[in-house]
Design a binder for these strands. Sequence first.
DNA 1: GACCAGGTCCTTG
DNA 2: CAAGGACATGGT
Length: 215
Amino acid sequence: MSASSSGNDATKARKIVGILKTRFGEIPWWPGDTDEVMIGAILTQQTRWENVMRALDLLKERGLCSMQAIYTADPSEIEEAVRCTGFYRIKAHRLKSLAVFVVENCGGIEPMATIPTPALRAGLLAVHGIGEETADSILCYGFSRPSFVIDAYTKRIARCAGITTPRSALKTLFESVLAVDPHVYHQTHAHIVEYAKGGCTKKRCEGCRIMALNG
DNA sequence: GACCAGGTCCTTG
DNA sequence: CAAGGACATGGT
């Protein structure tokens, strides 16, 4: 064991995970089917979840809340339904791109679910408009794969806690600390978001309770 | 009216 | 590779 920061960072990460679990316990998170998770993952990009829910409701009302439906739908229909999430033109296009991948490359959701995680992740990342966070959200919440989601909140909390690991390696850090269990990944990410929404804003991190963990 | 939100892509230096 | 802008609506 060296004096490198990684060991220290793992300790800090473990501490964050433990404290948040104690504080929030079990919380519901993304209780939709695979289609809905995939759509929500794209719609929530840089957008509040409350707005995403309204769009999901609209899509459901209009029979558009599935990859197959989006695959065949008129682009303007999709745009109209997702307008309230912002970036609606680009998001409608991204949904189309994902639907093309699911339907044409994978042959549908069922066959898609049999693809091994590394290949599935690579496939998702190759879809225009799907980056790491969206891909991992889909893998973790839509396909129950242990691929930890690193979002803006996770990066912020890591910074507050004094973790020095580069942001690009945060995924590896947290995965090294967590039990390899999709449910644990779900809950931990949910805890981080829940905590950060209330106590760790972009401007004011001085009062971040997590930071008290350092001392 | 200013600022921000559970990103990603493209362009510059 | 880091930094900056674009994409756009809705809430505080």
